[in-house]
């Protein structure tokens, strides 16, 4: 039995230690907001935060996540920056199919937590691990810039 701290709650899963967190979240805990896109750490669809760091759940064994703070897209509404980012995403009508967007938002939130006013280069560097096959990149950029702007005007974290 592994204990996982997900969005502030302790959840128990009975899975092999090497099962990636992605499948523990999705199949065992029913938290399907975190998406499967590639399974090998190259698309960003499965992005979560562990102890505040952006991490790809598809290549993170549950054993490595146990006992640490895991945040997923389902927890972002309760997160100040998460909320601002989600709002910017909606206002910019970013999503097309939307499948990649949970991962995009998780990466963007983590960027804005460490870099509240990112440069264009910093946005590119942070976001280039997240693929959007529908091609929403221009709007993602706009949403990040808007979120950064409102975080700056809304004061510091």
């Amino acid at each position: 039995m592994t204990h996982l701290q997900v969005n502030g709650q302790t959840r128990k899963v009975d899975v092999p230690d090497d099962m990636p967190l992605l499948w523990a979240l999705r199949d065992e805990l029913g938290m399907t907001g975190t998406k499967f896109g590639c399974g090998i750490s190259v698309c960003g669809a499965c992005m979560v935060h562990i102890d505040g760091q952006p991490v790809r759940a598809c290549v993170t064994p549950v054993s490595a996540a146990a006992g640490r703070e895991i945040s997923t897209i389902e927890g972002m509404e309760a997160d100040r920056i998460g909320q601002v980012v989600q709002q910017a995403w909606a206002e910019n009508n970013v999503a097309q199919c939307g499948y990649c967007q949970a991962g995009q938002i998780m990466t963007a939130v983590s960027l804005l937590k460490t870099t509240p006013a990112p440069t264009e280069q910093q946005i590119n560097d942070a976001m280039s691990g997240n693929i959007c096959r529908c091609g929403t990149y221009p709007r993602i950029r706009a949403a990040i810039e808007q979120a950064a702007g409102s975080l700056v005007s809304g004061g510091r974290q």
Binding site: T32, G33, M76, A90, A95, G98, Y99, A102
Partner: peptide, 21 residues
């Protein structure tokens, strides 16, 4: 008119074929 699924997508609540349980 706002897209019907827009908010659910941003919250990770939208249900895709992959999310069926």
């Amino acid at each position: 008119v706002r897209l019907v699924d827009l908010e659910a997508i941003g919250k990770g609540e939208a249900v895709y074929g992959m999310d069926m349980r």
